[in-house]
C-alpha cells in the first residue's frame, strides 16, 4: 500500500461529514483509479482467501447443536381425486390403443384357467381387472368416461376388484341352470377353487384413530418429527450447547442424552440443514470474557430406523416428547422458532 492510497483512505474515512463538494469529486475520481488498480491486482489471486479472524473477538454467540430427528413416510400418499380420475382415464385410453392381450401366451387352451379367463372377460369386457366394465374395441369404445358418482377411479374400489378377481372363479354370479349349460364338466370348475387372499393392511392405524402423538405408527403417509418439551415448557427439537466436538458428534450426544439409547438413528451428512438465532435483549458476559449477544442453534438432520424415544434418563430435564407432522409442529412451537425451522421440514 503506497502513500497515495493511505491519503485516499484518510480522506475517505471522514468523507461523510466535513469535505466540500469539489474535494469530494476529486477524491472520488482518485479513488476510482485506486479501486481499479486494486481490482486488477486481485484478479491474479485465483485461490480463495479465508476471512481473517479477529485477534480479540469482543462479541460472540453461544453455539448450540440441535437434531431434527424424523421418520420418513412409510406408505404412498393418497391420490388427489383429480389424479385418480386422470389415471383411470389414461388406462381406459390405453385399452383402446394397446395391442390385444395375448391370451394363449398366458393360458393354455382348454385348461380350467383358460375357461375362468373366458368367463371373467365376458363379465368385465376388458383384460384390465381394475378399470371397471369397459370395452376398448367396437362401436361403443368411445364411451370411456365414468359418470357422476361412479366409483371406478377410487383407489379402494380398485383394490377390492383386484382381490375379488383373485378370489372368485367367475361362476359365482351366473344362475344355476346357465352354469350347467356353459360349463362342459363339473370337474373343471371344481379345480379352480380359490382360497381367500390376504387383505392389505389398513392405511389408517390404531395410533391414527387414537391420535397417539407418541407413536411412530401414526400418519404413515407423512414425515414425523421428534419434538421435546424442555425445562421451561417450550416445545422444540432436542438441542444442547456445542462443546469441543463437531456438530455431528454433538448430534449423536444430544440424541443419546435426550432420548436414550433405544433408538437406531442415522445422522444424515456432516452439515447442518438450518439454524435458529435468538438475540438476547442485553448482551451477557461469559467466563472467558466474551460478550454474548445471543445464541445460535444449528440443526443436524437425522433419521430414525427403529426403536422409540425414552425420556426417563435424559440429562436435559426434558418433560415430554411428541412425533408430529409439519403442520402440527407449527401449532406447538413458538412463532419465531417456526419461522426459522419451517423451510427445513419436508412438506410430505
Amino acid at each position: 500500500m503506497n502513500a497515495g492510497h493511505q491519503t485516499t483512505r484518510r480522506l475517505a474515512a471522514g468523507a461523510g461529514k466535513s469535505i466540500c463538494r469539489s474535494c469530494r469529486d476529486s477524491l472520488s475520481r482518485n479513488y476510482a483509479s485506486a479501486a481499479a488498480a486494486a481490482v486488477q491486482t486481485e484478479d491474479h489471486v485465483s485461490q480463495h482467501i479465508p476471512p481473517v479472524a479477529q485477534a480479540s473477538p469482543q462479541t460472540s454467540y453461544q453455539v448450540n447443536a440441535g437434531v431434527v430427528l424424523s421418520r420418513p413416510p412409510q406408505i404412498t400418499r393418497d391420490l388427489h381425486p383429480f389424479e385418480s380420475a386422470f389415471f383411470l382415464y389414461q388406462r381406459r385410453l390405453n385399452e383402446r390403443s394397446a395391442l390385444p392381450f395375448t391370451r394363449y401366451f398366458y393360458y393354455k387352451e382348454r385348461t380350467p384357467a383358460d375357461r375362468e379367463w373366458k368367463r371373467k372377460i365376458k363379465q368385465r369386457l376388458t383384460p384390465a381387472r381394475d378399470i371397471g366394465r369397459y370395452k376398448g374395441y367396437g362401436e361403443e369404445a368411445w364411451n370411456d368416461e365414468v359418470l357422476v358418482g361412479a366409483k371406478e377411479s377410487d383407489f379402494n374400489w380398485q383394490v377390492e376388484r383386484l382381490l375379488e378377481d383373485a378370489e372368485t372363479t367367475g361362476v359365482e354370479d351366473q344362475p344355476a341352470q346357465e352354469l350347467t349349460e356353459t360349463t362342459p364338466s363339473p370337474l373343471a370348475q371344481k379345480k379352480v377353487e380359490h382360497e381367500a387372499v390376504e387383505r392389505p393392511m389398513s392405511r389408517i392405524t390404531e395410533a391414527d384413530k387414537k391420535n397417539d402423538v407418541k407413536s411412530l405408527n401414526r400418519l404413515l403417509q407423512r414425515t414425523l418429527y421428534f419434538l421435546v418439551k424442555n425445562k421451561e415448557g417450550q416445545w422444540m427439537f432436542p438441542q444442547d450447547g456445542l462443546q469441543k466436538e463437531t456438530l455431528k458428534e454433538a448430534a449423536h450426544r444430544v440424541l443419546e442424552y435426550s432420548a436414550g439409547v433405544n433408538m437406531n438413528t442415522w445422522i444424515v451428512g456432516n452439515v447442518p440443514i438450518g439454524h435458529y438465532q435468538l438475540d438476547y435483549p442485553t448482551s451477557r458476559k461469559t467466563e472467558s470474557g466474551l460478550n454474548e449477544l445471543g445464541l445460535k442453534t444449528f440443526f443436524m438432520k437425522a433419521r430414525i430406523m427403529a426403536g422409540q424415544a425414552n425420556l426417563k434418563e435424559n440429562q436435559f430435564g426434558l418433560q415430554d416428547f411428541q412425533w408430529l407432522a409439519k403442520e402440527e409442529v407449527k401449532t406447538q412451537v413458538e412463532d419465531k422458532y417456526w419461522r426459522s425451522i419451517k423451510n427445513m421440514l419436508a412438506e410430505r
Binding site: P72, P73, T76, R77, L79, E83, F87, Q90, R91, L93, N94, S97, T223, V268, G269, V271, I273, K301, R303, A346, R348
Partner: peptide
Amino acid sequence: FQPGPFSLPRLEQTYQSTIAADILTLTY
C-alpha cells in the same frame, strides 16, 4: 399419442419425499 401415466410409482414418491432431500444434505 401414447397414453400414460397410469400411476404414481412408489419409488418416485420415496425419491421426492426422502431420497432427494437426503442426497442434498449428504453432498452439500
